[in-house]
Amino acid sequence: MEKLLEEFSLGLFFWQTLLFVLLLLLLYKYAWKPILNAVNDREEGIKNALDAAEAAKKEMQNVTADSEKLLKEARAERDALLKEAREIKEGIISEAKEQSKIEGDKIIKQAQAAIESEKKAAVADIKAQVANLSLDIAEKVIKEELSDKKKQQKLVEDMLGDIKLN
């Protein structure tokens, strides 16, 4: 301890304190403050850039999600449209089938009615013609048979029997 005290130089202590404090003040003003500020600014800049990148990434994710959602919606809409179209198509087809069936039935009915009426007309015509023919025949028979009374009678009777049979 005594040796240490003897070694202690007040002059050196004085110069050391003075020079060190001076150095501290000078370095504070011209070195440490600008250095630490610059480093801080840089770190802040890096942090901000990272934050911005993160935000951009999130935004991108949002955009992707949005577009995916849109795509999904579009797909669903398309599917709905297609389904609707198919339904419409089926409706049209079945309706057409029904219509055609009704139309066909109608035509068939008309045709049947026409055939019936034709048939009726034809039968009537044939009846008229048969009547005429009968009258003609009857006229001729009458003309021929009037000479013979017996024969006349027989003919009328036969004829009447024939008609009845008819």
Binding site: L10, G11, L12, Q16, L22, Y30, A31, A38, R42
Partner: peptide, 30 residues
Amino acid sequence: LDFSITKNVVMIFITGLLMFWLFSSLARSY
């Protein structure tokens, strides 16, 4: 009372100058 500029004082001074030069130039380089 000895307030001499001794070898150690000279070295403190040189170190101070060196530090001032080094770190002020570092500060300026930013």
